[in-house]
Amino acid sequence: MRGGTIFCGAIAAMLAGAMSLPAQAESLLDYVGQCVPFARAASGIQIFGDAWTWWDQAEGRYQRGDTPKVGAVMAFAKQSRLPLGHVAVVSRIVDGRVLMLTHANWSRQNGERGHAEQDVTVYDVSDDNDWSEVRVWYRDSDGLGSTTYRVNGFIYPDRKTKAARELTGKQPDYVGALIDAYR
């Protein structure tokens, strides 16, 4: 199954007041869990609740837009394959239609979901080149998944907020990202 059903939301009461990753995660990339606490820790954007609610919650609190910027949160819309939405942090901009995300709880690793993934390829497939529809690299298919996902837009962190140091790798595979997107 390519682009399988993704379940991503908040870890209810346990993490409701958390401002960072759970203590068992020594580094951002060691994290295993839901996308929401991961995106909050990676971006510094302090929004809580299911991923699909982030876009509306950001209104009036954070700048929002349709232009990707490193450190911004890409807010995926609630849809059949993403019943709780999804949030991921922009780690690199490759070209006008390709970027890289760092996120958690997307692909399966060792047969389980929840793991963090760094510098994952995302391809803008929207007709207007506005990042409203994307395809995301999916480990199970070792390439871009076949599903197109709707995106509300990008939530930008405050200027004083710093993204996590492991947001991007030292040598991301730009060429691989372009090949995945344009083949």
Rank of each mutant, 00 (worst) to 15 (best):
A16M: 11
L144G: 09
G9E: 15
M14L: 09
I155G: 08
F76R: 03
T147L: 01
V98W: 05
A12W: 05
K170C: 12
D30M: 02
F48E: 02
R150P: 12
W52N: 13
D66R: 14
L15H: 14
T161D: 14
A77C: 12
L21F: 13
I45L: 12
V73T: 07
V36P: 14
R81C: 07
Q79L: 09
L167A: 06
Y31V: 00
Y138F: 06
D66G: 11
N110S: 11
E133I: 07
G153C: 01
L21M: 01
A75C: 12
F48Q: 05
D127Y: 03
A163P: 00
E112S: 05
A12L: 07
V94I: 14
A10M: 07
E112R: 07
I11E: 11
R2M: 06
S141I: 00
R150V: 08
I179G: 01
R139E: 15
M1Q: 11
N110T: 03
D158S: 15
V32C: 10
E117G: 00
K69Q: 05
A163T: 07
G176R: 08
L178T: 03
L178F: 05
W137R: 10
V94F: 03
D140S: 12
G3K: 01
S20I: 01
G65N: 14
F154Y: 10
A39C: 07
A39K: 04
D30E: 02
H86D: 07
I11Y: 08
R108F: 04
P22W: 15
A72D: 06
R108G: 02
E166V: 04
